[in-house]
């Protein structure tokens, strides 16, 4: 039995009929047609699907869409302003932190929470913050560099 819910994603309200077992990821990638959050494992193991819910980084594959009602959901498509990239997005480009890029959206969303919490995180704080997100291309080195770069820029 589907349930009618209202979701606020990147500042826009959406009214949707969803099954109770539909995940937030499924709704974002499905009816809302957002491609930023990626399905990597569907079991809370890789972090490619990470979005922000009320300012906290969340695996969207592990949250039911119905639980996201009335909350402020931000995906990678919703960061940056007036056509300008978010400093983290720019830093990922400048540091060469993007290879295949499949993990990038999720890691930027986690890093965004980190930089909202700490002005100048040290290397260990950065590494622990992104430890729930897997990357198979970069060895994380340039991702850590990018987050440091964004922290210094902001």
């Amino acid at each position: 039995m589907k349930k009618l819910i209202r979701l606020n994603v990147n500042g826009d309200d959406h009214e949707l009929a969803v099954s109770p077992d539909e995940t937030l990821l499924g709704v974002l990638r499905g009816p809302l047609d957002l491609i930023g959050p990626k399905r990597g494992c569907d079991s809370g193991g890789c972090g490619c699907c990470t979005v922000q819910v009320d300012g906290k980084a969340v695996y969207s594959c592990m949250m039911y869409a119905v639980s996201a009602q009335g909350r402020d959901i931000i995906t990678i498509e919703g960061i940056g302003r007036d056509g300008e990239l978010d400093p983290l997005q720019q830093a990922f480009i400048d540091a060469g932190a993007v290879q295949c890029g499949y993990c990038t959206s999720g890691i930027i969303m986690v890093a965004k929470e980190l930089l909202n919490t700490l002005d100048n995180p040290d290397e260990d704080e950065i590494r622990h913050a992104i430890a729930g997100n897997l990357c198979r291309c970069t060895g994380y080195q340039k991702i850590v560099d990018a987050i440091k770069l964004a922290a210094a820029a902001s």
Partner: peptide
């Protein structure tokens, strides 16, 4: 030269190009 990747902009803004999006 460490020129930036031409594909990086698209990937940091969501990534339209993956086959998983088709």
């Amino acid at each position: 030269k460490s020129v930036p990747r031409p594909d990086a902009f698209d990937k940091v803004t969501g990534g339209k190009g993956y086959p998983v999006n088709i």
